[in-house]
């Protein structure tokens, strides 16, 4: 016999795998608000946590918001009257205004912990050992990060995005976001996008079918 005896697929067939090429990594719970008042009104987090997470987001904003040397360039990305100027070591720079903030799903932030994770978290610091991934890929573990600033781009209104322009969510309040979006860019250590330019140069114009294979 010149063919395989018996073959099967173990992972394919679950349709999500085909979209997985661009979307990988676990998801986690976070809280998204335009301002402190909205956070308090929502009532999921303690008032103290709302303020603390917002303050942290604002500090991150000053450190990590995208910077522009011209107001026009900033407004081209973020919209008219959506940028502010700062003085940075003597020279003037323009930053987009913080459109909102994302607060971590931390035990100490919550007014009432989730019933399904209460047992799991008993005696476990921040619940980090409770990474109970479910079939949806959503993890109910608690985050260990602090508030992050969020922005709204002119060409993607209605979406919350991070300082390093990662998509976060289109909804406010309690949200499910990719864990990657909660990482503070303040580590300043990681850059992306250094691969992939050649492929777009060779995208064929006659077909919507741009393979890099052969």
């Amino acid at each position: 016999m010149k063919r395989s005896q018996m073959i099967t697929l173990a992972l394919m067939g679950a349709p999500l795998l085909l979209t997985a090429c661009g979307q990988s990594g676990p998801m986690e719970k976070a809280f998204i608000y335009p301002d402190v008042q909205a956070c308090k009104t929502d009532g999921k987090l303690t008032d103290e946590a709302c303020q603390k997470e917002f303050d942290n987001a604002q500090q991150e904003h000053l450190k990590n918001a995208p910077q522009y040397t011209s107001l026009a360039d900033c407004e081209a990305d973020f919209g008219d009257a959506r940028c502010e100027s700062r003085t940075n070591s003597g020279s003037s720079v323009f930053l987009p205004m913080m459109a909102g903030f994302m607060a971590a799903n931390m035990l100490s932030n919550l007014r009432a912990p989730y019933p399904d994770t209460q047992n799991c978290n008993a005696g476990v610091n921040n619940g980090n050992n409770c990474n109970t991934s479910t079939t949806s890929g959503f993890s109910s573990r608690y985050g260990s990060w602090r508030g992050q600033p969020l922005y709204e781009s002119k060409d993607d209104t209605g979406s919350w995005r991070t300082a390093d322009n990662r998509f976060v969510s289109r909804s406010s309040g309690e949200s499910v976001v990719s864990h990657a979006a909660t990482e503070s860019p303040s580590v300043g250590r990681v850059s992306r996008g250094g691969f992939g330019k050649s492929a777009s140069m060779h995208a064929s114009s006659s077909s919507s079918f741009h393979s890099s294979g052969s």
């Binding site: 090429c21 492929a199 741009h210 890099s212 294979g213």
Partner: peptide
């Protein structure tokens, strides 16, 4: 593989 290409995504998934 590159993003947004069904054939390539299918190939690496396989």
């Amino acid at each position: 593989c590159v993003r947004d290409n069904l054939e390539d995504a299918g190939t690496i998934a396989y």
